[in-house]
């Protein structure tokens, strides 16, 4: 099967510092990939390169077979790739409805006519409510984003990316700064949402090994900007040295598939 997104020999330097070294990866239809690695391993840099925000110093990134270097976020969205951010990234004063409508309006090309009614736009409305339903945000639709809880803000950030109806979505630590209980529900929502919205691939950066073990089809471990491992969880979690390298300075968790399943959520 043809890859949705593929990186070939990607390197990225910030001045003299090399943040990514010869990274190659690909994601195919239906895959959920987790990128893991200690702080500073280059995970966010990789997401930036994969989403065309940063140009690789060497190598290239292809989305649907076309090079996406420097195409910019708007064109990226148009081609079917969306992303969430590591830090909460919302429109504080806009309501949930408006936030989702921003994406729906761009997707449905509603901008050329500045006199067009938004409130009476059934298609935008349907899109917005569909996404809100998927992410359990319907009861929040008319509240400003700033009034949401931390977890809901993260959800809204991700939900707004989903409102673009992308084929591929990249999310940098969707659960950072969120309590453990919320982490699991966010992940559940993400996976359900992807299925419902017809998203064909998810790439996420995630530190929580329980979540990684539980939801990924494949794990890509980065260390010092290079790919240390690229394998399914079953083999990944059989290698204690690998896990130690990835968890880095963070407190070790219990990254064990059966243990993860026993955990109530």
């Amino acid at each position: 099967m043809a890859a949705l997104l593929a990186a070939h020999g990607v390197s990225k330097s910030y001045g003299a510092f090399q943040a990514l070294r010869d990274v190659s990866l690909s994601i195919s239809d239906g895959e959920f990939i987790s990128i893991v690695g200690p702080n500073g391993a280059g995970k966010s840099t990789l997401v930036h390169v994969l989403t065309g925000l940063l140009k690789p110093t060497a190598g290239h990134v292809h989305f649907h077979g076309a090079n996406i270097a420097g195409i910019g976020p708007v064109e990226l969205a148009r081609r079917g790739m969306a992303r969430g951010f590591q830090l909460v990234n919302i429109f504080p004063a806009l309501t949930v409805r408006e936030t989702l409508a921003v994406a729906a309006a761009s997707r449905l090309k509603r901008i050329a006519n500045p006199f067009r009614s938004l409130t009476r736009d059934r298609e935008v409305r349907a899109d917005v409510e569909e996404v809100a339903d998927i992410f359990n945000l319907r009861h929040r639709l008319d509240q400003p984003a700033s009034a949401l809880s931390q977890g809901e803000k993260k959800l809204l950030d991700v939900a707004s990316a989903f409102a673009l109806k992308p084929q591929l979505i990249l999310i940098d630590e969707p659960t950072s700064g969120v309590s453990t209980g919320d982490k699991h529900s966010i992940m559940e929502l993400l996976v359900t949402a992807a299925r419902k919205a017809g998203v064909r691939g998810i790439i996420q950066v995630e530190h929580d090994m329980d979540l990684v073990a539980r939801y990924s089809d494949r794990i890509i471990a980065l260390q010092g900007g290079a790919v240390l491992a690229n394998e399914p969880p079953a083999t990944f979690f059989r290698d204690p040295a690998l896990i130690a390298a990835v968890v880095g300075t963070r407190p070790p968790s219990v990254p064990h598939k059966s243990a993860a399943e026993a955990r109530p959520c």
């Binding site: 969306a82 990234n89 919302i90 806009l94 921003v102 309006a105 938004l118 950030d157």
Partner: peptide, 24 residues
């Protein structure tokens, strides 16, 4: 109150985020 007006407000609130939601 048009989608265009909404995009203006999204830009005011967070231009980078807006651009990733397809706002020019």
């Amino acid at each position: 109150r048009s989608p265009f007006g909404l995009h203006l407000q999204a830009i005011r609130e967070n231009a980078q985020k807006a651009s990733y939601l397809g706002v020019q």
